[in-house]
C-alpha cells in the first residue's frame, strides 16, 4: 500500500437516528482491506463516538479516514460551536448534552474519553463559534504506538 487510501464521509447533522452510518461503512471498508479485527474495532468505535458528537453538538460535519502503511488516521471536522473547556470535556462524566440526548443512550460524558481510549494519539483543535477538528491515529503496529 504505497499511496494512502482516503475515505470521505459527510455526516448529516439533522437526524440522530442515522448517526453512525459512516462508522458502519468504514468498518466494512477496513474489513475489505483485511486489517486486524482489533484495529478495525478501535477505529470504528472512535469514529462512531466522534460521529455521534458531531450530530449532537455541531449539526454534523465531515469525516475523513486515511489508511497508510503504518496507521489509520481519522479526521473529524465540524463547524459547530466549538468546545469551551477541552480539559473538562475530556473528563469522564462531563457532558453538555440535553436530556433528549440522554434518553437516546448518549450524553453520558464518555464520548471524547472513549475516543482517546481507543486511539493512540488524539489532537483537538477547537475555536469557539468557528468549529472543531479532531485528529486521531491508530497505529497498525504496537511498537509505533508506544514510541
Amino acid at each position: 500500500m504505497a499511496e494512502p487510501l482516503v475515505f470521505h464521509f459527510d455526516v448529516d447533522g439533522s437526524d440522530f437516528t442515522s448517526a453512525g452510518q459512516a462508522s458502519v461503512q468504514i468498518k466494512k471498508n477496513l474489513r475489505q482491506l483485511g486489517l486486524p479485527s482489533d484495529i478495525i474495532r478501535r477505529v470504528s468505535i472512535a469514529m462512531y463516538e466522534g460521529e455521534i458528537n458531531m450530530v449532537i453538538h455541531a449539526n454534523g460535519g465531515v469525516a475523513d479516514v486515511i489508511v497508510t502503511e503504518d496507521c489509520v488516521e481519522i479526521v473529524l471536522k465540524d463547524q459547530g460551536p466549538g468546545i469551551e473547556d477541552v480539559e473538562k470535556a475530556m473528563q469522564e462524566g462531563y457532558s453538555t448534552a440535553t436530556s433528549t440526548i440522554h434518553s437516546l443512550g448518549f450524553g453520558a460524558g464518555m464520548g471524547l474519553p472513549n475516543m482517546k481510549r481507543y486511539s493512540d494519539t488524539m489532537e483537538i483543535d477547537t475555536v469557539i463559534g468557528v468549529g472543531t477538528t479532531i485528529r486521531m491515529k491508530i497505529y497498525l503496529n504496537k511498537d509505533q504506538a508506544e514510541s
Binding site: T17, A19, G20, R41, I45, Y48, L104, G105, F106
Partner: peptide
C-alpha cells in the same frame, strides 16, 4: 441486554462486534 430502543443500540452492538 438493554432497555433502550433506538437504532443506535444496533449500531453500538455492531461497532463492538
Amino acid at each position: 441486554l438493554t432497555g433502550l430502543v433506538n437504532p443506535q443500540v444496533i449500531r453500538t452492538a455492531e461497532m463492538m462486534d
